[in-house]
Structure formats: structure tokens, C-alpha cells
């Protein structure tokens, strides 16, 4: 059981880190603001989600995993709203030719 949870943790966190690295590279290298936003949200949503998934078996049952899940949900909510607002601002400032 503990081997299984360790395997889940290692796989989940590694996959999450991959998304964070890819998101960061995208943030630094992508040419325009909207694509950079796209890269950033992948790190926020998928990366953090996978890390949370990986950490869940290590957390103290039953409230620990729930707490981690709530952290992820809060991050998703705020990052979704923030990127929508930033996207809207980019669209307006570039005269609706944001792409």
C-alpha cells in the first residue's frame, strides 16, 4: 500500500513539475501576451493539479487530501478569473486584434 502511494506521488509530482517547466518556458519564450497566458494557465491548472494528486496519498486522512483539493480548486478559480481579465485587457488595448 505504501509502495503504491509512493509510486503515485512520484509520478504525479514529476508530471506536475513537467507542466510547470513547460509553462515557464512558454511564459519566457512565447511571442505574444495571449500565448504566454495560455502557457501560464497550463502550469497553474494541470501542473498544480497533478502535484496535488501526487501529494494526496501522503496527506493525513481524511482532512489532508480534502485540504489539498481545496487549494487546487481555489487556485483554478483565481487563475481562471485573472487570466480572463488579463485576456480582456489585452484584447481592448490591442484594438480587438489580440491574436
Amino acid at each position: 500500500m505504501s509502495t503504491l502511494s509512493s509510486v503515485i506521488t512520484v509520478l504525479g509530482v514529476l508530471a506536475g513539475v513537467c507542466f510547470f517547466v513547460a509553462g515557464t518556458v512558454g511564459l519566457l519564450r512565447f511571442p505574444d501576451p495571449l500565448s504566454r497566458l495560455h502557457a501560464l494557465t497550463k502550469a497553474d491548472n494541470l501542473g498544480l493539479g497533478l502535484i496535488v494528486l501526487g501529494l494526496m496519498p501522503q496527506a493525513e486522512w481524511p482532512l489532508g487530501p480534502v485540504r489539498l483539493l481545496v487549494v487546487w480548486l481555489a487556485a483554478i478559480l483565481s487563475s481562471a478569473v485573472a487570466s480572463q481579465l488579463v485576456g480582456g485587457a489585452i484584447r481592448r488595448s490591442s484594438g480587438s486584434a489580440g491574436e
Partner: peptide, 14 residues
């Protein structure tokens, strides 16, 4: 006041 969908949602849900 930011009168946009996402902000209205966040300001009511959170």
C-alpha cells in the same frame, strides 16, 4: 467596478 463576467462571478462566489 470591473463589470465583466469573470469578475462578477468571483466577487459573488468567493
Amino acid at each position: 467596478v470591473v463589470d465583466e463576467g469573470p469578475m462578477s462571478l468571483l466577487g459573488r462566489v468567493l
